[in-house]
């Protein structure tokens, strides 16, 4: 039996909460997830719903990002309308490399936008507390929090550029077709690895700003054939911030250039190693986290 004193309070709540009829509050809840993967799926789905709630904003962002990505195309078009090649690289070749870089960058922004928010939102403002309380990997949660479906069209634009470039390229073998998704996925991993490593600095250096965007800026170099740059820049892009593995090295295989075949072949290994190392660094950094207590 319920004590009657609770009645007024319940009525007050019913004015605030939407009317759900007679159904019990948990009626639409499908029960606890059966596996870790199921939990992640449900978490990601929930975050995607949150992002889609502002439909107009979502569309404007998607269109905006798409057009920003399209600047590159205008830029290339303008240059190649005056010169036939850049150091022996034709329009279609550069377009293919650019498209591959764009596709990897688009997918990267869909999945890893959370790297940008780490410093301010999670470490300084202490939202990491909430994340750490849940029995799921903190890194994955943060990335899912910022799932950014708006940038899927950018990835498609990149694929479109690659498709367009094919008219000036030798035709692909079956092996090349099969490896294409692998190279793309590993390109995303290289980008994510390098930037995850830099974002983990945020645990040690408490600052509003973050170096992630800055390092990302350097990835603009991966849209061009690497040998048009000076030696120091080439070494930097191969050994220090290995952005040349995102698109350029694998792309050369499709362009029929043999000079970088070895580099292209090890790209998946490099990608897994870079990302693995970065995740390890990130985990080490996480130990330095001290809640601001706010």
């Amino acid at each position: 039996m319920r004590p009657s004193v609770r009645r007024p309070q319940q009525q007050a709540f019913s004015r605030v909460l939407p009317d759900i009829g007679d159904a019990p509050l948990g009626a639409s809840y499908p029960g606890p997830p059966r596996s870790r993967l199921g939990a992640l799926w449900r978490y990601g789905l929930m975050r995607a719903k949150v992002r889609l709630a502002y439909r107009g904003d979502f569309l404007l962002n998607a269109v905006g990002d798409f057009i920003v990505a399209g600047i590159g195309l205008v830029f290339l078009w303008a240059i190649f309308s005056h010169v036939p090649d850049i150091r022996g690289w034709s329009f279609h070749e550069v377009l293919f490399i650019w498209g591959m870089g764009e596709a990897a960058a688009g997918l990267f922004f869909v999945l890893f936008q959370g790297l940008w928010a780490l410093n301010q939102q999670y470490v300084l403002r202490g939202e990491l507390d909430r994340v750490l309380l849940r029995p799921l990997d903190a890194y994955v949660q943060i990335m899912l929090d910022h799932l950014n479906l708006e940038d899927l069209p950018v990835a498609l634009l990149g694929l479109g550029m690659m498709a367009w470039a094919r008219e000036g390229l030798p035709s692909f073998s079956l092996a090349q077709w099969l490896m294409l998704p692998v190279f793309l996925a590993c390109g995303v991993l290289v980008l994510a690895g390098v930037l995850t490593a830099f974002s983990s600095l945020g645990f040690r250096i408490l600052h509003r700003g973050t170096a992630v965007g800055l390092v990302y800026q350097a990835s603009a170099f991966n849209r061009y054939p690497i040998d048009i740059f000076s030696r120091p820049i080439q070494r930097l892009l191969t050994w220090v911030v290995p952005f040349a593995f995102v698109a350029f090295f694998p792309a050369t295989w499709y362009l029929g250039r043999t000079r970088w075949l070895g580099w292209a072949a090890v790209q998946p290994v490099v990608a897994v190693a870079v990302f693995g190392l970065a995740r390890w660094l990130w985990g080490r950094g996480l130990r330095h986290y001290r809640s601001p207590g706010s």
Partner: peptide, 12 residues
């Protein structure tokens, strides 16, 4: 009411 998308377009 919201300028995020508009800011993108401006940058472009």
């Amino acid at each position: 009411r919201n300028a995020a998308g508009l800011a993108h377009l401006k940058a472009t």
